[in-house]
């Protein structure tokens, strides 16, 4: 196992977030059983007061989860020098079977967190807290994810075995026995292009539909999620090739490096922002039938849809631009 500060920090944060959420889930169970907005009992008063604490705790927990996602990737990137055959973050995530699942879980927790925060925000706008049970039920679903993430991440770091020279007289030449696969398997570019722009089109249509008719918010979220997945696949499949100007380098992380003008940030930031906005929009729009939330939904949902569309468009424009300005030509190869 490694003892680097970044790893210590990641494990520490996961542990603390898990603890916070376990604390919150105890409260969530209490709410599910005993919440009664019409009661004036001391218990109800305490529960209402405690919701403040829980939502503050969770805002921090999810914000930290986002930073820990970034730290996780940075850390993988910086450790690539310490493993035989690992050239960048992809290789380090491949070091054992826990790397990729941890990353996916972190992303999933981030998006679940945004949904929860959107729900929480909306709930606080209604005078009678109409979504309180839904909210805490959702929280109970997120808790196992966070605990699994803590477990997987710890396993991932514990089971890392660095290939290093142990002493001057030790055996110095270690043959690359297992071999770390450094490339991600990928779709053919043609499929990826169709999937990405196709899902983008569906997203735009459903978004416009929602803005015009106030219908289909959930569909918009669903398309948002699809667009996110196809976008990531496209980055791996062909966008990264154009950024690297290299026909075989598919890594989704190296584009974050300075050597490639930090192109990755211009893609990932709008993409993640747009997806979380789209998810939040769908979540909010679903509750428009509740009387105390009706007016809030009418105000916030279109705003979120609007913003999500803007950021998705920024992503598509930038992705197209990176491909367009590249010196790499693959026309005759891909047909």
């Amino acid at each position: 196992m490694f003892l680097s500060p970044a790893i210590l920090a990641l494990i520490l944060v996961s542990a603390v977030i898990s603890l916070m959420l376990i604390l919150a889930s105890g409260f969530a169970i209490q709410v599910l059983q005993k919440w009664n907005i019409n009661s004036g009992s001391e218990l109800q008063l305490n529960l209402e007061r405690r919701t403040y604490l829980i939502s503050t705790l969770l805002i921090w927990a999810f914000a930290s989860e986002l930073i820990s996602l970034m730290l996780f990737i940075y850390n993988a990137e910086s450790m690539s020098g310490q493993f035989v055959g690992a050239m960048c973050a992809t290789g380090v995530l491949n070091v054992n079977e826990w790397g990729w699942p941890t990353l996916f879980l972190k992303i999933a927790i981030f998006f679940s967190g945004t949904i929860w925060l959107a729900l929480n925000y909306l709930d606080n706008k209604g005078f009678d807290y109409p979504l309180v049970r839904v909210k805490y039920l959702l929280l109970l679903l997120i808790v196992p994810m966070v605990i699994t993430e803590f477990y997987m991440q710890t396993r991932y770091f514990m089971e890392m075995n660095p290939d290093v020279i142990t002493s001057c007289c030790g055996s110095l030449f270690s043959v690359d026995a297992k071999g770390v696969a450094s490339e991600v398997s990928s779709l053919t570019p043609r499929q990826a292009i169709i999937a990405m722009y196709g899902s983008g089109l569906l997203l735009m249509l459903s978004g416009t539909w929602y803005l015009l008719r106030n219908k289909g918010g959930l569909l918009f979220s669903l398309f948002g999620l699809t667009a996110f997945i196809t976008a990531i696949m496209s980055i791996i499949s062909y966008i990264s090739l154009y950024i690297y100007e290299h026909p075989h380098h598919h890594c989704p992380f190296c584009i974050l490096k300075s050597g490639h003008d930090y192109a990755g940030y211009t893609l990932y930031i709008p993409l993640f922002l747009a997806t979380s906005l789209a998810l939040a929009a769908g979540t909010i729009s679903y509750w428009k039938k509740i009387p105390s939330l009706n007016s809030s939904v009418a105000v916030y949902a279109p705003k979120l849809v609007y913003l999500a569309l803007i950021f998705f468009n920024i992503f598509y424009i930038l992705a197209t631009w990176w491909v367009w300005q590249s010196n790499l030509t693959m026309e005759s190869i891909w047909q």
Binding site: F2, L3, S4, Q82, P162, D163, V164, I165, F173, S174
Partner: peptide, 12 residues
């Protein structure tokens, strides 16, 4: 290999 060793030693 030397680089890798330096890297882990300083990190450690």
């Amino acid at each position: 290999e030397i680089l890798r060793t330096y890297d882990s030693i300083f990190a450690w």
